[in-house]
């Protein structure tokens, strides 16, 4: 649904995005992670035909960026970093304006505006000037604006930034529901937890694409797979027993917990449990460890900084 080949954008001598190659499948949520100035928004603007690539190619919904810009803009919805609403106008007037620009007729406009204001819980406040809305309400209204014309591809730039936890949850749930409708969602975010919860694939960018994979594979690729064994007390006999297991790598001891890297946790974990119990361990807990996406992200950024 979204494809880029060596997409590059430079402003004078500054390179904002360098040789970006991506393939986002239809119906998935693709999270784009990166620090400030990494090129996330510039990439989104290129894909939304707001700025022209300096070199490389891109297509959105089967249409070529740079050739079919008007058609692409008609098929995408975009939530920009700032809500950018007309504060003196009410919610209906704001949405009606954009619905007209997207070519919806009067009946469609009425239906779509009502639909999204109801879904996002703004219908009762529809006649109030948007200037009176809270940040969360404005963000929800901006999301409604991006969806009025039922776009195939939705670009969301920091959709939950500056929202309180309750509003952020409403927005996240709504994004998950959008995926259920078969839309492709390109999500630029700083929020690692959000990317972890929502995304099918994550691309980590810092001017160029550093890694792209599923959240789970990113963890696995960087951290391997680890299993935690908590015992009442760790003894030398237990440590000796573990040394005898060649497949149990990188044994880390933390209080009464042992974290062990295993290549095949489903088959190897019972063998470790047997060895520990045979060595007199009183096992209290056994569970697979998951590195947080934050750890993965920081590790990738650290590697990138070192490489530079």
């Amino acid at each position: 649904m979204i494809e880029t080949q060596n997409l590059t954008k430079t402003f004078d001598k500054f390179t904002a995005v360098e040789r970006l190659t991506l393939d986002v499948q239809a119906g998935e949520i693709f999270a784009f992670l990166g620090p400030n100035g990494a090129g996330k928004t510039t990439t989104m603007r290129m894909l939304a035909c707001l700025v022209a690539p300096t070199s490389g190619q891109a297509s959105v919904a089967g249409l070529r960026v740079g050739q079919d810009d008007d058609a692409i803009r008609a098929r995408i919805g975009i939530l920009t970093e700032a809500p950018g609403l007309y504060e003196k106008l009410n919610a209906v007037q704001n949405l009606d304006f954009f619905a007209r620009l997207y070519g919806l007729d009067a009946a469609q406009r009425e239906k779509q505006i009502k639909r999204y204001l109801e879904i996002l819980g703004l219908w009762e406040r529809r006649a109030e000037p948007v200037g009176n809305f809270s940040k969360g309400m404005k963000q929800k209204l901006s999301i409604a604006r991006a969806l009025l014309h039922e776009p195939q591809v939705v670009f969301l730039d920091e959709p939950t930034s500056a929202l309180d936890p309750e509003s952020a949850k409403v927005v996240r749930d709504f994004i998950a529901a959008l995926k259920g409708e078969g839309r492709t969602i390109f999500l630029c975010t700083h929020n690692l937890d959000e990317a972890d919860r929502l995304a099918d694939h994550i691309g980590v960018i810092k001017k160029r694409l550093i890694q792209v994979d599923t959240p789970e594979n990113l963890r696995r690729r960087l951290y391997g797979q680890r299993v935690l064994f908590r015992v009442r007390e760790i003894t030398d006999a237990q440590m000796d027993a573990l040394e005898g297991l060649a497949f149990a790598r990188d044994v880390q001891r933390n209080g009464a917990a042992l974290s062990i890297a295993l290549d095949d946790p489903p088959n190897m974990t019972p063998l470790v449990v047997n060895a520990l119990v045979a060595a007199g361990a009183a096992l209290q807990e056994v569970r697979q460890e998951r590195a947080t996406l934050e750890e993965v992200y920081l590790d990738l950024m650290g590697q990138e900084n070192t490489a530079q």
Binding site: A74, I78, T80, G84
Partner: peptide
């Protein structure tokens, strides 16, 4: 100032 130009320019308007 209102930052409303970007969403507007993202529509099919020329």
């Amino acid at each position: 100032q209102n930052k409303s130009l970007e969403p507007l320019l993202a529509t099919p308007i020329k």
